[in-house]
Design a protein around this nucleic acid. Sequence first.
DNA 1: TCCAAAATGTAGCATATGCTACGTTTCTAT
DNA 2: ATAGAAACGTAGCATATGCTACATTTTGGA
Lengths: 168, 168
Amino acid sequence: MTSSDSSHRPPSGPKSQAKRAALTGRIADVMLAEGLAGIPLRDLAARLGTSDRMLLYYFEDKAELVQAAVAALAGRLDKVLETSRVSGRRPPAQVMRDTAAFLALPDLRPFRAVWADILARGGRGETPFAAIARAQIEGAIASLEEQLDLADAAERRRVAAAILAAIE
Amino acid sequence: MTSSDSSHRPPSGPKSQAKRAALTGRIADVMLAEGLAGIPLRDLAARLGTSDRMLLYYFEDKAELVQAAVAALAGRLDKVLETSRVSGRRPPAQVMRDTAAFLALPDLRPFRAVWADILARGGRGETPFAAIARAQIEGAIASLEEQLDLADAAERRRVAAAILAAIE
DNA sequence: TCCAAAATGTAGCATATGCTACGTTTCTAT
DNA sequence: ATAGAAACGTAGCATATGCTACATTTTGGA
């Protein structure tokens, strides 16, 4: 009795991990549907049929929750990317066209909204979005680098960053 | 003494109107620079070297303040549009290309950010952004309608809305 | 000069929100 | 069956934020 929960560190058992993962997915769903990252924990919990108390039971704090949800979204995006990926290294202009075309897909509309929201908040220094934005940008650049047929690594990185900036 | 301000209706004198307009412009500047519409009144006031008390002295409430600032931004955009406007009515595809090219101008980047923010918040039902978003969309459609060389008015409106949706 | 209106400061209220303390119930392993 | 862990509820705190009440200072016209 009185396990003194204290609501600190989230549970670490495998069962809990699974529930946490399921929750993360549903949170990601809400983010895609409602396009918001600044939603109050109480509202978010209500949509999920639970309580803010439970969200903070499975996640350390709101920042970690958002990070997990965004990571889940990034994972989904990667999966779509896998299937529609043009394989092999190509010249910069080609990579840029392909990427722009991919991001223009109607299915990705909600992703774009969330991505834009994160970048906006991150650019404004809001925690935890600054860190998330950096990570997302880093990942995007890495993905672009892999597709470029440039010999010099530094050059690859420069061009990848340029492509990303142009597309944004 | 004790003018019983009560902080309700903003002042209506011509001097006050001028000061209010100047304030509105500076608020619009902050929005362009920081790209935010959800900034707390205290923070916004601090950036302007005044107090939240003063903002609510010149504006009825935060909603009106935001509306005024967005209106100011829309006015600036219109001015840019005037100078770079392609005159006369053109076929839909042409209008769409022109509009897309115009919106892609690098100078308009901050405007796009604010516009996107407003649409996102409006789509989510947040006040006062829902109303502002509707007004902005209405204005954009009207502007597009004027440039279309279609005879039927209903058809013009339909096509204008379609162009806007495609560009968004 | 004098006074009313405009402008501004200070303090605080009501609500929202992230988070915590503390309790009870439910499950699970022995 | 029972003890301990896990899961969950309830209440509340601390802070942030929009906004108001009240007081004071500043200003412009008579």
